[in-house]
């Protein structure tokens, strides 16, 4: 699994594929205060991107991938 759902934190790692989008949305709906840890994430599929853009959760840790961080920091604020 590219996303590990903890109590109040979803940890993204490597490449988060299209199949994770549904679970991500469900989790975010269930945990409205859930935070996202992107530190070890290199890319998220567009489906996940639109979930994040729709919900705009708090980012607990930015991605170490500079380009991804730039994208997400403008899109999720």
């Amino acid at each position: 699994m590219a996303i590990e759902f903890k109590k109040n934190l979803a940890v993204f790692s490597d490449f988060v594929g299209v199949e994770e989008a549904e679970a991500l949305l469900e989790w975010l709906l269930k945990n409205p205060k859930g935070k996202i840890n992107l530190a070890d994430c290199t890319h998220i599929h567009a489906s996940n991107l639109q979930v994040l853009m729709a919900v705009k959760p708090t980012i607990a840790a930015q991605s170490k991938d500079e380009d991804l961080q730039l994208w997400l920091s403008t899109l999720l604020n």
């Binding site: 949305l25 709906l29 489906s47 639109q50 729709a54 403008t74």
Partner: peptide, 19 residues
């Protein structure tokens, strides 16, 4: 930039598999 044109009225109805 990226823009989200969410057509669903609420997040619950959002179709994540439709771009």
């Amino acid at each position: 930039n990226a823009i989200l044109n969410n057509t669903a009225s609420s997040l619950v109805e959002m179709d994540v598999f439709s771009s």
